[in-house]
Design a protein around this nucleic acid. Structure first.
Lengths: 148, 148
DNA sequence: ATGCAATTGCAAATCGTTTGCAACTGAAGT
DNA sequence: ACTTCAGTTGCAAACGATTTGCAATTGCAT
């Protein structure tokens, strides 16, 4: 039972614990986040939210994202070119490979790279607070394809 | 004689070759870039430019940066939080360590990390077009300091 | 010198995001 | 259930970084 269980994040709980109110719009946004298997941006979240409750405003989406980010419940990623995209913070740390053609985000992790980063920072006299490693690429043509 | 010689970039030449005119404002901006040892953003370049020729506009700075970027003469880096910052493209590829307290940018390179990235991308079925590796950190207190 | 397309400065527009504000509403207390 | 009131909302306006339309200017090939 030591596998990376993709825990359905309990955002409401996290927020309550942080002393914020669970309002109608927040409930909607939270449910969207919990369901999202991708890395939606604020506008995308807003669109999905409107389908559930047409009264929600984009401002509230932004405000809620900032709130969740502050609480540490989600991570914000500012990939090249586009708006910030979000993902639940519940999973193990990972970096991203962005498909330049589709915008798809693939997660990966390399303990070796993490170590090397630490090593480099130490040599330069720094402590890493956080880092950003993003690979921008295209699906290799030919050979095996992983379907899509 | 195999050290990384910081070749004073011949922007004018690169631009001429690309068929663009060498105008007065461009000359000023180009000279600033050639001298810059740091990673200035557009506004900073603009400020430095105004001191040489007060008639230069921020738009022209932006336009010139885009031009140089298109020609491949400079690289644009969108570090977290702030505006894009630029650096000559003439040097060897490297990644960046950003000092969170000062905004200073320290360059580093790890062939091992580059290899690992390639490996990871390949395993995921991708070709890397480019990547972004940024370490955000603080100078380690105590012990040796590299002066500053 | 001449001519014209490339380039400029300016102001206005754009994009993603934040914010001021008056109206509204959770949730704690009765 | 009813009140209360600070937390929250939607809206529109403000924001910072960057881009763009346009009329005036200017490289640079002739």
């Amino acid at each position: 039972m030591n596998q990376t269980t993709p825990i359905r994040p309990d955002y409401e709980g996290e927020l309550r614990k942080a002393g914020v109110r669970i309002t109608r719009p927040r409930k909607v946004i939270l449910s969207i986040l919990a369901d999202a298997g991708d890395h939606p941006d604020a506008l995308e979240i807003f669109k999905r939210a409107v389908e559930i409750d047409s009264g929600i405003s984009l401002s509230t989406v932004y405000r809620t994202m900032k709130l969740l980010e502050g609480v540490g419940a989600i991570h914000r990623h500012a990939f090249e070119g586009g708006p910030s995209r979000f993902e639940p913070a519940g999973v193990e740390h990972h970096d991203h490979l962005i498909d330049l053609d589709t915008g798809d985000v693939i997660e990966f992790h390399s303990e070796r790279i993490e170590e090397l980063q630490q090593e480099i920072a130490r040599e330069l006299g720094y402590d890493i607070v956080h880092h950003r490693l993003e690979l921008y690429g295209r699906r290799r043509r030919g050979k095996v394809s992983r379907g899509g």
